[in-house]
Each structure stands twice: as C-alpha cells, then as structure tokens.
C-alpha cells in the first residue's frame, strides 16, 4: 500500500543555540520525508539546512528559519528561509566562492549549500542582516494525492 504522508504545515523555528540546529535538522528531515522526498534528496536538503542554520547562528548572531511547503503544478517542494539581523555580507560574490571563510570553517557553507538545493537566493544589507532562501522540489509525481 502507498504511504500517505502527513500534512506539512508552515513553521518558524528559532536558531539561537547548538540544540536549535539539531532541532532544525530534525524538523526539515520530517517535512521532506512527509513531502515524499527520496533518502538522498532528504539528506541533501537537511545538510544544506544545517550549513545555513549554522551560518545564521555563527555569523548572524542567531535568527530564525521559516519552513514552508510549496507547490508548482503537481510538484511539491519545501522552502527554507534563514533570517538574521547580523552584520550582513559585504561581498556576496566573494562569500559564495568555494573556500572563502570568515569563521574558521572550510568555507563551503554558502557555496556548498547552493549545490544541494534547486533554488537559492540571498538578500543581505550590510549592518542590517541576511536572509538566505532555498527551495528543493520532490522529483516526479508526488506519492500523495493532493487536492483529493
């Protein structure tokens, strides 16, 4: 029998601590599974979420993520929007380069996360904060019966 995924509702999760990062990963995994994402796709999205949430915490001084289920025709997806009111990014192009780092990491946070999702957008104002929005789409026809 086909598994009928549970409903996925929009949610806002705080990003203030290590424990919040773990919670964001678990919630994103659950939503992706409910939307019918395959295991590899789930893993990619959760990893991207982990990178971006850590950016929000470490570089943005904390913030939140909005988790929103989205649809495009019969395709279903998940949109994650990470927002902080930290120092912002002065040179976005430079920050998106592999190996660029300001926090002692491997410098793969932004550029790596971009490769793990289908859509990627960044909105930053120096001194005001940064919002990174990513979307991943479930491949093919979803296993649920939307609209029924």
């Amino acid at each position: 029998m086909m598994a009928v995924p549970g409903p996925v509702t929009a949610a806002r999760l705080p990003i203030r601590s290590d424990a919040d990062l773990a919670w964001v990963r678990q919630q994103v995994r659950q939503c992706a599974a409910d939307l019918g994402f395959g295991l590899v796709q789930q893993t990619k999205l959760v990893t991207a979420a982990s990178e971006l949430a850590r950016n929000t915490l470490v570089h943005g001084g904390g913030g939140h993520v909005d988790v929103t289920p989205v649809t495009r025709g019969v395709t279903r997806g998940l949109r994650l929007s990470f927002a902080d009111s930290g120092p912002g990014i002065r040179d976005v192009e430079l920050a998106m380069t592999d190996g660029y780092t300001s926090g002692g990491g491997l410098g793969l946070g932004l550029s790596g996360a971009r490769r793990l999702v289908d859509e990627f957008g960044i909105d930053t104002v120096p001194g005001r904060g940064t919002t990174v929005t990513v979307t991943a789409w479930a491949p093919g026809v979803p296993t649920a019966r939307p609209g029924l």
């Binding site: 295991l39 590899v40 789930q42 893993t43 990619k44 990893t47 990178e51 592999d98 491997l106 793969l108 550029s111 790596g112 996360a113 490769r115 793990l116």
Partner: peptide, 12 residues
C-alpha cells in the same frame, strides 16, 4: 551512501 553523495555534492 546518501551521506557520501551529499558530501561530494557539497564539495567535501
């Protein structure tokens, strides 16, 4: 496997 694929995609 899923973790390995993701790490490679991430560039790590």
């Amino acid at each position: 496997p899923a973790v390995a694929i993701t790490l490679v995609e991430l560039g790590l």
